[in-house]
Computed example of a mutant assay.
Amino acid sequence: MLDGPRLAPLSGGKPNKLVVLLHGVGADGQDLIDIGAHWAPLFPDAYFVAPNAPDPCDWGVGHQWFRLAVRDAHEYWLGASAAAPKLDEFLDAELERLGLTDADLALVGFSQGTMMALQVGPRRPREMAGIVAYSGRIAGVERLKAETRSRPPVLLVHGALDEVIPVAALQETEKALRDAGFAVASIERPGLGHGIDEAGLAAGAAFLKRIFATADV
């Protein structure tokens, strides 16, 4: 079972929302849990967790959701689909442990973590609250429409100068999601490389506020 750093609700009470932060290749949960700490005052009843990916990174540092050797669409699909059951198992266990449902769940991914969020989210039978996808792309674009089981709203944020995953992936991913019937918002951050800036964090927080408020109705 996956595990990683966690932040209990600042309110000290029972959590009413779960935010799962999915890191990129060569990193670990500690790299993203600070986002939870940044957002926690805005969501005092939310529980944040940043699981470490299941495999040691081939680069010798951190973890990876799947191997990146040739970096092509087929490799992304094979890797993301193979790792998905482990993430699904973790999400199911966390929701059960906290007494929450998919409607209370948001996934926040960065880079390879975004690939995992966009792999798992649409294929879960019950719709989660939403997905925040930073600096990533979708794997298996051509398979998405046929395999979609639920359509959570998605926010895509990408740096215009991303040197790892070019910003063209933003348009490709947005089109694939829209064609499959998803509600999508996208933000291209000028001057930003492969990372998350303050404007991106603020946009993510605003998106979570909106989707969580909707889930409470």
Rank of each mutant, 00 (worst) to 15 (best):
M1P: 12
L2H: 04
D3M: 08
G4I: 06
G4Q: 10
G4T: 14
G4L: 04
R6C: 10
L7D: 11
P9Q: 05
P9V: 07
P9C: 12
L10S: 05
L10N: 12
G12I: 04
G12M: 05
P15G: 12
K17L: 08
K17F: 11
L18G: 12
V20K: 02
L21M: 01
L22A: 06
G24W: 07
G24L: 03
V25L: 15
A27Y: 01
A27R: 07
D28R: 00
D31N: 11
D31Q: 09
L32W: 02
L32S: 01
D34M: 10
D34P: 14
G36V: 08
H38T: 14
P41S: 08
F43S: 12
F43V: 10
V49N: 02
V49K: 04
P54S: 03
D55G: 09
V61H: 03
V61A: 09
G62M: 09
F66W: 13
R67Q: 07
L68V: 06
V70I: 13
R71V: 14
D72C: 05
W77V: 14
L78D: 15
A80R: 03
S81Q: 15
A82Y: 04
A84R: 04
L87F: 06
L87A: 05
E89T: 15
F90S: 06
L91V: 01
D92I: 00
E94M: 13
E94Y: 13
L95D: 14
L95I: 10
R97A: 15
L98C: 14
T101K: 11
D102M: 10
A103M: 04
D104A: 14
A106G: 08
A106P: 02
L107V: 04
L107R: 01
V108S: 01
V108P: 05
G109Q: 06
Q112I: 10
Q112S: 06
Q112N: 02
Q112P: 03
G113Q: 10
A117G: 10
L118W: 12
Q119D: 14
Q119Y: 09
G121D: 06
P122R: 02
P125T: 15
P125D: 10
R126S: 07
G130A: 12
I131K: 01
V132C: 02
A139L: 05
A146R: 03
S150I: 06
R151A: 12
P152E: 06
P152R: 06
L155W: 02
L155D: 00
L156V: 10
V157L: 11
V157C: 02
H158Q: 00
A160M: 04
L161Q: 14
L161V: 15
A169G: 01
Q171I: 05
E172K: 00
T173I: 07
E174F: 06
E174N: 00
R178C: 01
A180M: 02
G181W: 06
F182H: 00
A183D: 14
V184R: 09
A185V: 13
I187S: 08
E188C: 12
G191I: 09
L192E: 03
G193Q: 02
H194N: 07
G195A: 12
E198I: 07
E198C: 06
A199I: 13
L201E: 03
L201W: 03
A202F: 00
A205W: 00
L208F: 09
K209I: 09
K209R: 14
I211E: 02
I211D: 10
T214K: 13
